[in-house]
Design a protein around this nucleic acid. Structure first.
Lengths: 194, 194, 194, 194
DNA sequence: TATGAATGAGCCTTCATTCAT
DNA sequence: CATGAATGAAGGCTCATTCAT
C-alpha cells in the first residue's frame, strides 16, 4: 500500500515531466505505474492529492542533509555550495526538476497558500544550517539565500531548453561565487560595526 | 479581423494568467474576449496557434526599444539596467509575466525548437544594443546577459507567491549590480590583455 | 434545438419510468433519444437540469385546461371530476405517472424548495377554477382539494403494481364522491351560518 | 453476526432516507453502521439483498399487533383506526416512512412480483383482524381497506415536503371517517339484503 | 471469521473541433 | 464572412464486488 503510493508518485513525476501537469491524466499515470486506473484513486482520493504529495516530496529531496555529527575537517558549507549541490541534484534528476516547476505553477493557482511552503522550508533549512555550522547571525545569510534560490529557479528554467549540464553548472558556480562574496561583505561589515 | 485576433490574444493572456495553460479552454477564452466560440477557430485554426501567437508577442514586448537616434547624453545602458527594466515591465504586466512562464513550459513540450527562440532573441538584442552603444566586443556581454536572464526568470517565479514588488525590485538591483560588475571585470581583463 | 430538447425530455420520461431516476443514466437517455451523448449536455448543461425540466413539464400537463370561454351548458366541474380527470391522464400516460413520483422523491432531496411547487400549482389551479366557475369562497375547496391530491398519489402508487386501470378508476370515483360530498357539506354549513 | 445484520439494516434505513436508494451506496451504509465495507458483503451477498431485507422489515413493522387475548372493553378497532395508527407510526419513524416509499419504487422495478407483497400482507392483516374481531363477512372491509392504504400512501407523499405532522394527522382522520362511514353503509346494506 | 486491498465497469462532464447555414 | 449547433474523444471519479490473508 505504501509501496503502491511510491510507485504512483514516481510514475506521476515521469508523466508530468513528459506531458506537463496538464497532460498528466490519471489514465497515463496509472499506465506508467503499471496499475489499474481505479487503484490510483484507491491510494489518492483525488488526483490533486497525488500531485500535492509529489510536490511535497520533491521539496523534501532538495533539502540538504543535516551533517551535524559528521565529524571531520570538511570545508565549511556556504550558500554557494548549497546552490551548486541543489543544481547538481536537479541535473541528476531531470524529471523531478521539470515536474517541480510545473507543479509549483499548478499549486500556485490551486492553493496559493501551500505553494510557497517548500521554498520557505528550503530557505529556512539553508539559513539554519549555515547559522549553526558557523555560529553567526541569521541575518547574514537571508538575502544571499533568497538570491541563490531565485538563481536556482532561473537556471533550471534555462536548462530546460539548452539541456547543457556543463553550461548550467558553470553559471551556477558564477552565481555561487557572487552570493558567497555577498555574505563575505556582510561579514566584514559586521566586524567593523557589530 | 486583425482586431479580433488582438482581442483573442489579450483574452488568452488573461485566461492563462488566471487558469494556466491547462485551464485556458477555448470556451473561457472566447467568453473573456466576448466573442462566439466558433470565432476563435475562425481566427486561429487550432488553439495551439493562438498560444504560439501569444507567446511570441510577449517575447517581443520584453525586448527594449532601440534608442539609436534618441540623441542626448543619457547615462549608458548596461545589462543591469536591461534586467531592471525587464523586471519593471513584468511587474507592471502581471498577467503577461505569469502567462509567459506557463506558455514557455507548454511550448517546450509541444515544440522544443520554438520555445527558446524568444529567449535567444531577447539575449541577442541586449547584446547587440550593448555592443553597438558602447562599441565593445560582443563576448564582453554574453555571460552577463544570460546570467541576467536567468535571474529575471528566477525572480519572476519567486514573485509569483510573494507578490512583493518592492522586494523583487530590490533583489533585481542586487543581481544587476552583480552582472554589471562582472562586465566591468571583463572589461579590465580585456584592457590588460587585448 | 427546441425540438431536440423535447426529444430528450420524452426519452428521459421513458428511461426514468423503466429504470428509475437512479438508472436514468445520460447514456441510456441519449440512446433512447437516438442522439449522441454529448448532445444531451449541449441541450441541458447538467443531467439535473433535464430532470427538473421533465418534472416541471409533467406538473404542467396535469393541470386541467382553463375552460372559461368554452361556452355551453357543461355540467359544472368539481374537485371529484378533477381527480378523475387527473387519474385518467395518468393512466393514459403510464410513463409520466411513474416518472413523476420518482422525480418527486429525487427533487425532494436535491432541492426541497422546488419539489412541492408543482403540487401547489396544481392545488391552486383546481381551487381557482372551482372558485371562479361557481363563484364561491375559496375556503370551501381547499381541504377537499388536498385530500383529492393525496388520494391521487396514493392510487398512483397502488396502480404501480396492480396495473389494473379499471380498479384504479373505480377507487378514484369513490374518493371523488367522498370529496365532493365534503364540499357539499361545507356548502350547507355556509348557507346556514354565512 | 445477526446483530451485525441489524446494524446494517438500521444504517440502510437512515442512509436511504437521507440519500434515497440511489444514493445509498455500500460505502455510505457501511460507514453509517460503523463497520468495514467488506463486512456488508459478508452479511449480505449483494447490496440488493440488504435492501429487500429492509423493505420486508418495514412492512412487518407497519402491521398492527394482534390483540386477541388482550381482554377488556376496548372500543372496537376499525379501518379508520388502523389508518390513523399506521400514520402515527410513520410520523414517529420518519426515516422508515421515506425509505419505504423509495424502496417500494426500487423493488417494483427490480422484482415486480415481490414489491406488492408487503402491501397485500398489510391489507390481509387488517381485513382479517376486522373480520375476526367483529365477526362479520370479509367483503365488508376489502374496499375500505384498500382505500385506506392508498390514502396512507398519498398522505405520506404529501407529508414529505410539508413536514406538518398535525396537518397530516388531520387529513388522516378525515380519510378515516370516510372509510369507516363506507363500511357502515355496507353494513346497513347487508342487513337489508343479506 | 472478518477485512484491508484491489479493480473492471461505468458514470457525468468537458473539450477542441467541425459543419451547415 | 461569421456563427449556432453538433459531436467523438477523453477526462476524473465512484461503485459494487472480489480476493488474499
Amino acid at each position: 500500500m505504501e509501496q503502491r503510493k511510491d510507485e504512483f508518485v514516481e510514475a506521476a513525476v515521469a508523466v508530468i515531466a513528459e506531458h506537463g501537469v496538464r497532460g498528466a491524466t490519471t489514465r497515463r499515470i496509472a499506465e506508467a505505474a503499471g496499475a489499474p486506473l481505479a487503484s490510483l484513486h484507491y491510494c489518492f482520493n483525488r488526483k490533486e492529492d497525488l500531485f500535492v504529495e509529489v510536490f511535497t516530496r520533491i521539496g523534501v529531496l532538495l533539502v540538504p542533509a543535516d551533517q551535524t555529527g559528521t565529524a571531520g575537517t570538511r570545508s565549511p558549507r556556504t550558500v554557494g555550495t548549497f546552490l551548486c549541490s541543489a543544481m547538481d541534484w536537479l541535473l541528476a534528476n531531470e524529471n523531478y526538476a521539470i515536474a517541480q516547476v510545473d507543479l509549483y505553477l499548478w499549486l500556485l493557482r490551486k492553493d496559493p497558500d501551500k505553494a510557497p511552503r517548500p521554498y520557505e522550508i528550503l530557505a529556512d533549512t539553508w539559513i539554519r544550517l549555515l547559522t549553526q555550522e558557523q555560529d553567526e547571525p541569521r541575518e547574514l545569510f537571508v538575502e544571499a539565500t533568497w538570491l541563490a534560490i531565485s538563481a536556482m529557479d532561473g537556471l533550471t528554467l534555462q536548462w530546460f531548453y539548452q539541456r547543457d549540464d556543463e553550461r548550467t553548472r558553470h553559471y551556477a558556480r558564477i552565481h555561487a561565487d557572487f552570493v558567497d562574496r555577498l555574505v563575505e561583505q556582510g561579514r566584514k561589515a559586521l566586524v567593523r560595526s557589530p
